[in-house]
């Protein structure tokens, strides 16, 4: 059982991650992503929504797979800007590593 942390999303605002909760988890971004990799990038966005900080840090290397092609952002039906979110998460993860 993982405890949901609703404050995490707010914490991420400082890194430019502020549209994660706009996502309604339709999966378009994952399906359109040329990486064709599991649930990426929706997985990361969902982890932000429920505040699964540890999961993001554990799987941080996945964030660097992103080619920043922009397909997910262009086709997102909620304009949740998944591409930008991934970039913001990279900034967050880097900051965490630096702190550690």
């Amino acid at each position: 059982m993982a405890l949901v942390d609703p404050d995490f999303a707010a914490e991420l605002k400082a890194y430019g991650v502020d549209t994660a909760l706009d996502c309604f988890n339709c999966g378009t971004c994952a399906a359109i992503c040329p990486l064709n990799f599991e649930h990426f990038p929706r997985k990361m966005i969902r982890y932000v929504q429920v505040g699964a900080k540890q999961k993001i840090l554990q799987q941080a290397q996945d964030l660097w797979r992103c080619l920043h092609c922009g397909l997910c952002t262009r086709t997102c039906p909620r304009q949740a800007n998944p591409g930008e979110l991934i970039l913001g998460l990279r900034r967050y993860v880097l900051a965490q590593f630096r702190r550690a």
Partner: peptide, 16 residues
């Protein structure tokens, strides 16, 4: 509140 969340790939989540 405990839920098996479809959006989080079926993970069990807890919300106080």
């Amino acid at each position: 509140v405990q839920v098996k969340d479809v959006l989080t790939f079926g993970e069990e989540l807890e919300v106080p």
